[in-house]
Design a protein around this nucleic acid. Structure first.
Ligand SMILES: [Mn+2]
Ligand SMILES: [Mn+2]
Ligand SMILES: [Zn+2]
Ligand SMILES: [Zn+2]
Lengths: 142, 142
DNA sequence: AAGTTACTAGTAATCATTACTATCTCTAGA
DNA sequence: TCTAGAGATAGTAATGATTACTAGTAACTT
């Protein structure tokens, strides 16, 4: 009897995959792949960068983590999977959750305006985190 | 007597810069740098990729065009500078304007929730364009 | 146990972007 | 008008992030 326990495209929960998922969950914030790599290496010194990328991809594909594709620079990952938005500091790059709500009919409005079959949306706020904000103006930007 | 006619950081309107701006404006859609490069080369066969990147950056910095940093893949540019949102086709990558409105207090709400000094936000819808939507399901995705 | 598939480490390759360098061009005085 | 910068350019090298490839290992199926 065959039964599919793990999501599509993820046949096995390997040690590497498990540690990568753990690392992301414990990190608290929204690390990029190479930050996850650093964390994972503490447990698995021989892990390869490719394995980290591949598994972050696989986990995201399976809906167990979220990819954050917005903004410039490297991609970031999020252990939180329920929809929520983020704010990014233009100075230091920090990414934090932003618990604001959007009107529910938004995607429907987009479908009506564009004729696209709308799957969803991505939203990111940008600004300066408290720490950086207090220094803006004091520091000369280059 | 010194007088600054052009926006900060853009001292001169060179032929290359002008053609790049023209190309973006005439393109209608939301090209990436290397699409702009193709278009510009029709007028200036000897233009270099670096010039295209540098000037798109400069023009954006000067507020004459908009950079679209959303989603995966290369950066895109937009001759339209008033705030509006976009939708991206997950199949073919096409980017179109989406004329929906967001509640006005949104950035303020984000500031209150996060303590960040909020500069603005970026929003992108994702889905399937009419052309691609009608083929989804018919085609085997690899 | 054997065959099959998923996965991994290590490395090479690719893609998008930025940096560097020598040369050119414009412009503001002298 | 001449000239010294500053600004810009073409061409190329370098970088950063990600993906692809390869040969070997581990796990599942029968
Ligand atoms: Mn989050
Ligand atoms: Mn637009
Ligand atoms: Zn900051
Ligand atoms: Zn499409």
């Amino acid at each position: 009897m065959e039964m599919k326990q793990l999501p599509e495209k993820m046949a096995r929960m390997t040690p590497q995959r498990r540690v990568i998922l753990e690392a992301l969950r414990k990190s608290g914030n929204h690390p990029s792949a190479d930050r996850v790599y650093e964390l994972v290496r503490e447990k698995l010194p021989h892990v390869s960068m490719g394995t980290v990328y591949r598994n972050l991809e696989t986990l995201a594909e399976a809906g167990m983590i979220q990819r954050l594709e917005l903004g410039p620079g490297p991609r970031h990952y999020d252990a939180g999977i329920k929809e929520h938005y983020h704010i990014r500091c233009l100075q230091c790059g920090k990414i934090e959750d932003t618990l604001v709500e959007l009107p529910s009919g938004l995607d429907r409005a987009a479908r009506i305006k564009t004729g696209f079959q709308v799957v969803g949306h991505e939203l990111e706020f940008v600004g300066y985190c408290p720490g950086c904000a207090k220094n803006i103006g004091k520091i000369k930007i280059k």
